[in-house]
C-alpha cells in the first residue's frame, strides 16, 4: 500500500469516493445534533478518506494533501478548540464548560448558546480525530520512516 498501485479501477473509484466521503463526514458532523453522528464519527470518516487515498494511490498522495506539521498542528488545535470552548465561560462567571455563558458573545440566548457550544466542541473533536487517525495510520504504515518508505533497513531504530 506504500508503493504506487497500478490498478485503474481502484484509482478511479478512490478518486470518486474520496470527495464523497469528505462531504459525508461534514454532513455527519453537522447533523450530529439531530441524527446519529457527530464529531468523532465525522472525524473518523474524514480520516478514512485520507487513508483510502494512501491505500489507493500512494503515501505521497496523502501526505501531499496533509503535511506533517499540519497534522501536528491540527492534532492539538482540535483539542485546544474543545478546551478553549470550556475556558471562555470562566470569563463570564460560569463554570468550566458551561456553554450557556457563550450567550454573552453569541446571539440566541442561553439555550441556543449550548447548541452552539456543542457545535464548537464537535468541530474540535472532528479536527483532532481526523488528524490523529491519519497521523497514526501514516506512522504505522511507514513504521515512522516518512521520507524513505520502501524496504526495511537493518540498522537499529534508534542510535543508542
Amino acid at each position: 500500500m506504500v508503493r504506487d498501485v497500478e490498478d485503474v479501477i481502484i484509482k478511479t473509484i478512490a478518486r470518486i469516493m474520496v470527495p464523497i466521503m469528505q462531504v459525508y463526514s461534514l454532513y455527519v458532523y453537522v447533523h450530529g445534533h439531530i441524527s446519529p453522528g457527530g464529531g468523532f464519527q465525522g472525524g473518523c470518516i474524514m480520516a478514512a478518506s485520507f487513508i483510502l487515498l494512501a491505500v489507493a494511490f500512494n503515501l505521497g498522495e496523502a501526505k501531499r494533501r496533509l503535511k506533517e506539521k499540519a497534522i501536528a498542528v491540527f492534532c492539538s488545535l482540535g483539542v485546544f478548540i474543545y478546551a478553549w470552548t470550556g475556558v471562555v465561560p470562566l470569563f463570564f462567571g460560569g463554570n468550566f464548560l458551561d456553554y450557556s455563558k457563550w450567550s454573552h458573545i453569541l446571539p440566541g440566548g442561553e439555550v441556543m448558546a449550548r447548541y452552539y457550544g456543542m457545535a464548537f466542541i464537535e468541530l474540535g473533536v472532528q479536527i483532532a480525530v481526523m488528524a490523529v487517525m491519519v497521523s497514526i495510520f501514516l506512522d504505522l504504515v511507514t513504521a515512522g520512516r516518512h521520507e524513505e518508505v520502501l524496504g526495511k533497513d537493518d540498522d537499529g531504530f534508534y542510535s543508542r
Binding site: 501536528a72 498542528v73 492534532c75 492539538s76 488545535l77 483539542v79 485546544f80 478546551a83 478553549w84 475556558v87
Partner: peptide
C-alpha cells in the same frame, strides 16, 4: 491545555 501548546 499547556500540553497542546507545548506540542505545537
Amino acid at each position: 491545555m499547556v500540553s497542546f501548546i507545548v506540542f505545537v
